[in-house]
Design a protein around this nucleic acid. Structure first.
Length: 419
RNA sequence: GGAGAGAUGGCUGAGCGGUUGAAAGCACCGGUCUUGAAAACCGGCAAAGGGGCAACUCUUUCCUGGGUUCGAAUCCCAGUCUCUCCGCCA
């Protein structure tokens, strides 16, 4: 969430910058509401001051006057609250501003590749897709999931279930032991305040699964990513700068409606309503965001390096970035069956955009209170890593070799086959 | 599910109708002292919002929302959350 003061002071500049973020914000209305709001605040405060003075004097002859003032204040407050909530709704629907080195563009075609790593395996046969391989092994079962649940769900069975678990454990070990992240096993549901804090609400409510506990309890949502719950751990807190940075990692299922992507990636497990992801979150002093983003992205690519999977790293363009991000690196892994790179991780710095929404602050060296910087990144999406291993490590007979680093996690199994 | 207790500043914790935005301690920042550090002493230190170029100033805020009152952290009502005991249970 942006500071209305900043918008007011740099109105034209701000308006232009937001244009590149693919949104339609009624800036005229925003300014109008801001002016009305401040006018009402001023009126209210003038009356409040008078009332306060009367109360201090403790003079009975003035008590009637005070009563009248109270009525006026109530009326003005009502108007002001209405205006303020309209203003807040508008304000909370404005996306973050991109950093200067982010390419400007409407969509993914403007993304900029910054790194390519690993060698692409040349197959002397036509490589199969992960779902062909998985179904042939009888270890990915879509029909069964359709029966028990519905589309965009899957059963992962037998050695592939083990492989999935091995991947998750391997990632967690790297991030906790090598990269200094603290492991968290969080709630998989978040309340509406948390969802607002990281930016899923109010704008993206349609993508979320809402869960009802009972009539009385507040709104709850299945987390679309652990980012929501990990980042909100510091909501409404003032942290001492010596406790920063905070680096957290969690393995959780993620739940997404994938509204608006009907017909996209319908085959396989690329796009599911439920998937495992290892998520990294950093809470840092707000001037450290850029460095932390590089660090976090390296932590994510480290996993692919160790798995010996070829990948590339791209900076997302302004039109392709998420709502809360100021800069995002996508890491894309090579999928032989599609003959292209597909997203496997997304690492974003949100600057102070989320912390303003969450009121998450810290005391800086001068003992001043400032908003923290927040970052999040996948390290990595487990389901998609499973795809990448299947496709890149496949043999012509449909069996799958196990990457060396995973063997200790799989009882030293060398190969997955259905024999 | 039954019965109680509680929610105050970054933290701990006093206050229970009127100079209380709030004692005290801790933490933190600045200074004196010290070769340096520690200790000791002195001073500072809540947040949000409005106005002002600024110094500064005004308003609000003691869980949330209502109410009583000229006046509420303090009294009343409702809700949320936390803790303790009993029951049930993975």
């Amino acid at each position: 969430m942006h500071n209305i003061k900043d918008i007011r002071d740099n109105f034209d500049k701000f308006k232009n910058i937001i244009k590149s973020r693919n949104t339609n914000i009624d800036f005229d209305q925003l300014i109008e509401l801001d002016i009305k709001n401040r006018k009402l605040i001023h009126e209210k405060e003038t009356l409040e001051k008078e009332k306060k003075e009367i109360s201090k004097k403790n003079d009975k002859s003035l008590f009637d006057r005070s009563k009248k003032i109270s009525e006026k204040i109530i009326n003005i407050s009502k108007d002001q609250n209405l205006i303020k909530s309209k203003l807040d709704l508008l304000l909370s629907s404005i996306p973050n501003i991109a950093l200067e080195d982010v390419p400007i563009g409407d969509d993914e075609s403007s993304n900029k590749e910054v790194l390519k790593s690993g060698t692409i395996n040349k197959f002397d046969f036509k490589p199969k897709s992960h779902y062909e391989l998985g179904e042939k092994l009888d270890m990915l079962d879509f029909e069964l999931a359709t029966k028990t649940t519905g589309s965009r769900f899957v059963f992962v069975k037998d050695k592939l279930a083990l492989l999935e678990r091995a991947l998750a454990n391997f990632m967690l070990d790297i991030h906790t032991i090598k990269n200094g992240y603290k492991e968290i096993s969080p709630p998989l549901m978040a309340n509406n305040l948390s969802m607002f804090g990281t930016g899923q609400l109010p704008k993206f409510e349609n993508d979320q699964f809402e869960v009802k506990i009972d009539e009385k309890s507040g709104r709850k949502f299945l987390i679309p990513t652990a980012e929501v719950i990990l980042t909100n751990m510091v909501r409404e807190q003032i942290i001492s700068s010596k406790d920063l940075p905070i680096r957290l990692v969690a393995l959780t299922p993620c739940f997404r409606k994938e509204a608006g992507s009907y017909g996209k990636d319908t085959k396989g497990i690329i796009r599911q309503h439920q998937f495992y992801k290892v998520e990294l979150v950093s809470i840092v002093e707000n001037d450290k965001c850029i460095d932390e983003l590089e660090r976090m992205t390296n932590c994510a690519t480290m996993i692919l390096d160790k798995l010996k999977l070829p990948y590339r790293k791209v900076i997302l363009s302004t039109g392709d970035m998420g709502f809360s991000a100021e800069k995002t690196y996508d890491i894309e892994v090579w999928l032989p069956s599609e003959n292209k790179f597909r997203e496997i991780s997304s690492c974003s710095s949100c600057g102070t955009f989320q912390s303003r929404r969450m009121k998450a602050r810290y005391k800086n060296k001068n003992n001043e209170t400032e908003f923290v910087g927040t970052l999040n990144g996948s390290g990595l999406a487990v389901g998609r890593t499973l795809i990448a291993v299947l496709e890149n490590y496949q043999n012509s007979d449909g069996s799958i070799n196990i990457p060396d680093v995973l063997k200790p996690y799989m009882n030293n199994l060398e190969k997955i086959s259905n024999i």
